[in-house]
């Protein structure tokens, strides 16, 4: 009986010990599995969107198609992606216009995920008509608004002034006449205008032809022990997605009634 009593006491003490302790400790942190660090790209890959956006959904689904668990961490800065890639040998990074050096590219495997049409836009009250032939020289002495962190060399060579800012600020600058044109993906622009500038949608005009496509890729790091193998699995998963039609379904689920071919370009692999 006594033994039974001590047994009960011991059980209670042990249970209590398990039930107490700091509420928020490192032990409770969920380690990120197969973490890919992605650069924020408004409308398709962004923490501002409920599910991270189209690109985030495609990346997650491609891994899932191969039964690979993954974590996509969207970061606001290219410098942080570079840090994780170079200083911590991250498994991979994802995004558009990632400014990778030739030395870095030797150790990377690039898998394009989605390609968006990108264009220049102008404000009709400022210019009744504006034309461009696809050559940046047409914009000589103009001020162009581009995304923060975008490569500027081509603009500088063409004698173009640059304003770098977040998209909403660039649209405001366009309307205020502080910049002449801005460059953005057609889909991002469409969504931003509908969300915050609905009364200006008809006044902001897209220039034909489109400029270079914005290709969002996942870039795997061969220096990471899992990098090469996961790149292969990811590519395979993406192929399965496309073949099954799930790839298009994910895009359509995000863009609703918009015509897919107006905003996306097939990814060449």
């Amino acid at each position: 009986m006594k033994t039974f009593f001590y047994g009960i006491v011991l059980f209670c003490v042990a249970t209590m010990a398990q039930a107490t302790g700091p509420r928020v400790t490192s032990a409770l942190l969920t380690p990120a599995v197969n973490e890919i660090f992605a650069l924020d790209f408004p409308a398709v890959l962004s923490s501002e969107l409920a599910d991270g956006g189209i690109a985030a959904a495609l990346i997650t689904a491609a891994f899932k198609a191969e039964q690979v668990e993954s974590t996509l961490t969207v970061l606001p800065l290219k410098t942080m992606l570079a840090y994780y890639l170079n200083e911590e040998n991250a498994l991979g990074i994802a995004g558009y216009d990632l400014d990778l050096s030739a030395a870095e590219l030797k150790n990377l495997i690039i898998v394009p995920v989605v390609s968006l049409k990108e264009s220049y836009f102008y404000y009709r009250p400022k210019y009744e008509t504006l034309t461009w032939t696809g050559n940046l020289a047409d914009f000589k002495n103009f001020t162009i608004g581009v995304n923060k962190g975008e490569s500027l060399t081509a603009y500088q060579k063409a004698g173009i002034k640059i304003e770098q800012d977040r998209l909403d600020a660039r649209i405001k600058a366009l309307i205020a006449g502080k910049i002449d044109v801005l460059r953005e993906s057609d889909l991002t622009m469409k969504m931003a205008l509908a969300k915050n500038f609905s009364d200006q949608q008809s006044a902001i005009v897209r220039l034909e032809p489109s400029t270079e496509d914005a290709i969002i890729s996942v870039v795997f790091n061969k220096k990471n022990p899992k990098g090469a193998a996961l790149a292969k699995q990811f590519q395979s998963g993406l192929t399965k997605l496309i073949a099954s039609g799930q790839y298009n379904d994910i895009i359509k689920a995000h863009i609703g009634d918009l015509a897919m071919e107006s905003y996306f370009v097939p990814v060449h692999r």
Binding site: P22, V24, T25, S26, L28
Partner: peptide
């Protein structure tokens, strides 16, 4: 610099 994990989350 280096980025180290938090020891616990912000409450």
């Amino acid at each position: 610099y280096k980025l180290v994990p938090v020891k616990r989350e912000v409450t």
